[in-house]
Amino acid sequence: MSTSAIDSVMSRIGAIESRFDASAISEPQPGAVPVVDNGVEFDPFGDVYQNAVRVRDASGFMPAQLGPTDGLIGASGFTSFRPGPAGAGAGGTAAVNAAINGLAGVAGVRPVGGYGSMPVPSSLRGFGNGRIPTEALTPLAAQSGHRLYAPAAASWNNVVTAARADGIQLRITDSYRDYDEQVDLVRRKGLYSEGGLGATPGTSNHGWGLAVDADVTDPATLQWLRTNGPRFGWVEAVPREPWHWEFRPEQV
């Protein structure tokens, strides 16, 4: 058997074993995170926008349409959905550590949107939205060219690892977005408040390194994220944007 064939078999065995090994989604070790191909054609701000929204609406994963057996955390017992306290931040808490390890909550779909203002970590607030220096962010081991706030990066790396074990390859098109990039996005796509797709520059949660745009072209990917993302502290925060996911470990 060739080396490449052996590697392929071992990779498949490792993926299967990781489903039964909680350590597979713990704090990532060097070389432990599967590397994702950057060749992504999905453009969250392009022609696929309406298709992605239709996928969301047609998937049946809206709270009002789900029963207890569908994995939804019902509104009657889901108090942590409420916005967190102003300035609470997302650093150094048990909730953050649980999210990194995929233990922030049980698997199941959460409400789409309605999470309120982002609780920004105190270590980031002093820099300002979209003005965080490169050295204050952490490169994603799972996908080159992207950076996030360190706990969010550790969590997303583990999301990618867990998804890979389930046959899902998660790719992102956007992570931290600096102020100039936010301005350019609004110039090209308009303000969200006016029917466009861009937040007012200086207010985007991408500007805190706490949000990603994921390739949800495949409905199975969106379904997987909705079911498993909250385990790692990630929620679908914007009703019109099923690709936009935010790290809110204290609110899932």
Rank of each mutant, 00 (worst) to 15 (best):
A154Y: 12
L185F: 09
R188P: 00
D37P: 04
A94R: 10
M118E: 09
F45Y: 15
D180C: 08
I13G: 03
V35N: 01
V216N: 03
P63E: 04
A24F: 10
G229Q: 02
N97H: 05
V183L: 15
P249N: 05
A165I: 01
G128I: 02
P242S: 06
A141K: 08
V48A: 11
D178N: 15
S175N: 08
P230G: 10
Q143T: 07
G113T: 13
V112I: 11
P249I: 00
A211Q: 12
L191V: 04
A32M: 12
N101Y: 02
V120T: 04
G128M: 08
S8V: 07
T200W: 10
V183W: 07
R177A: 14
S204Q: 11
G128Q: 08
T227A: 11
V160S: 10
L170H: 01
R82L: 06
P111R: 15
P34G: 08
S80T: 13
I100S: 06
S8C: 08
D7Q: 13
S11L: 15
E27H: 14
T173S: 15
T227S: 02
E135G: 03
N51Y: 07
Q251I: 10
V36R: 14
L170K: 08
R56P: 00
G130W: 06
A107P: 08
R164T: 13
R240T: 07
I16T: 06
N51P: 00
V96Q: 03
A52K: 00
F247A: 01
A104T: 11
V238Q: 10
I172W: 12
R177Y: 05
D7L: 15
V120R: 01
V112S: 11
P34H: 03
W224E: 01
T69Q: 10
L137A: 13
I16N: 04
L103A: 10
S175W: 05
A136K: 12
V252G: 15
L148G: 05
F81V: 03
E181I: 06
S76N: 13
L222V: 01
G128D: 04
G102I: 14
A237I: 01
G198I: 04
A15I: 03
E236W: 13
A86E: 14
G196T: 03
A64E: 13
E236M: 13
P85C: 04
Q182Y: 11
D70H: 11
S80G: 00
D47L: 03
L197R: 14
D180R: 14
V212R: 05
A24T: 12
D178V: 11
